[in-house]
């Protein structure tokens, strides 16, 4: 029993999960039962995948010991690439592949420059934040193109599920989250990612191709962000060049709230997902509770600090529990 308590207290996503449950209960009461009704859930679950997919990539990259500030801009540049190509008559799936290729290339540049010149990924990706945002506006010509009418919305944005509770994008989100989670916990690649972020010299000494592992994580992160951006554009029906602004920090906040350490090696995809849900729940719950919506950023900020403090406290308490190893 003691052992079990210890194991759970050491799980970094625990604090976020407890907070999430508490907040859901609070919002449910404060909103007179509106929060958990089908209509409101539909609203939350319909938008969740967009930040959620981005957070998955950011979480994996942070476990690998790196950082990506450019995800918000990549979120915009991917659908803009597609929209411009489709306006020229390129079919959707080809445009999709081209958009993903752009994301992969951005991720590759982020990773390659960071490793090759041994500079902090904070700097590389901060630069890329501006570059990708600028490119988005440049290729749009300052005037976003109209999307064609025959888009495969049935694959991404239509409502499905019992009582039309969620959109197709939610199914993509669940599948990708599960796949990413299994990749991190069950595959040798996941082991390498964690070793690379946990203690780089050890990973190198054991012959892990750490540079390739990191670049792969950068590419994965960019591609997930771009995919999320495309989903948002399909939902909105228009490729705005300003989408995703500020999301890079929300994504980092979600990952950190979910127990991922900025220093690498610690964290889980599940934690990032919980963090993303928390952000959506707070955004929505504050409105339903008739709190001034400008408190949203305050809540996210407070939560980020609180989650880290709570995690470190829990970790210390867990260590104090004497169980033989």
């Amino acid at each position: 029993m003691k052992r079990l308590v210890k194991i759970y207290m050491e799980k970094p996503e625990l604090a976020a999960l407890v907070l999430l449950i508490v907040l859901i209960i609070v919002f449910q009461i404060r909103s007179d039962g509106v929060f958990l009704n089908a209509n409101n859930l539909r609203g939350i679950l319909g938008i969740l995948p967009e930040i959620g997919l981005m957070v998955i990539g950011v979480t994996i990259l942070m476990i690998c010991g790196e950082f990506d500030l450019s995800v918000g801009s990549v979120f915009a540049v991917m659908p803009m690439t597609m929209a411009v190509l489709m306006a020229d008559g390129t079919p959707f799936y080809l445009a999709f592949l081209a958009g993903m290729a752009v994301c992969a290339a951005i991720g590759f540049v982020n990773g390659y420059v960071t490793i090759k010149f041994n500079i902090p990924s904070f700097i590389t990706t901060l630069g890329m934040l501006f570059i990708a945002r600028s490119l988005t506006i440049v290729i749009s010509g300052g005037f976003p193109p109209l999307l064609p009418n025959d888009l495969p919305n049935w694959l991404f944005t239509v409502f499905v599920g019992p009582g039309d509770l969620f959109r197709m994008s939610f199914i993509w989100f669940v599948i990708i989250a599960l796949a990413a989670s299994l990749m991190m916990s069950r595959t040798n690649f996941g082991n390498w990612v964690r070793a690379t972020g946990g203690f780089l010299p050890a990973a190198q000494a054991m012959g892990i191709p750490t540079a390739r592992v990191k670049i792969t994580c950068f590419m994965l992160c960019s591609m997930l962000a771009g995919f999320a951006g495309m989903i948002q554009v399909l939902r909105l029906g228009s490729p705005l060049p300003s989408i995703g602004e500020g999301w890079e920090l929300q994504a980092v906040a979600a990952a950190v709230i979910g127990g991922t350490a900025l220093s690498g090696g610690i964290g889980a995809v599940a934690g990032g997902v919980i963090g993303a849900i928390l952000i959506r729940v707070i955004d929505n719950g504050l409105v339903l509770s008739q709190v001034d919506a400008n408190w949203f950023k305050f809540a996210i900020g407070f939560l980020t600090i609180f989650a880290v403090v709570a995690n470190s406290w829990l970790g210390k308490r867990a260590k104090a529990i004497k169980v033989e190893t």
Partner: peptide, 10 residues
């Protein structure tokens, strides 16, 4: 190695 080649978080 002296500073052993182990990852503490694993």
């Amino acid at each position: 190695y002296q500073y052993n080649s182990m990852v503490p978080t694993m």
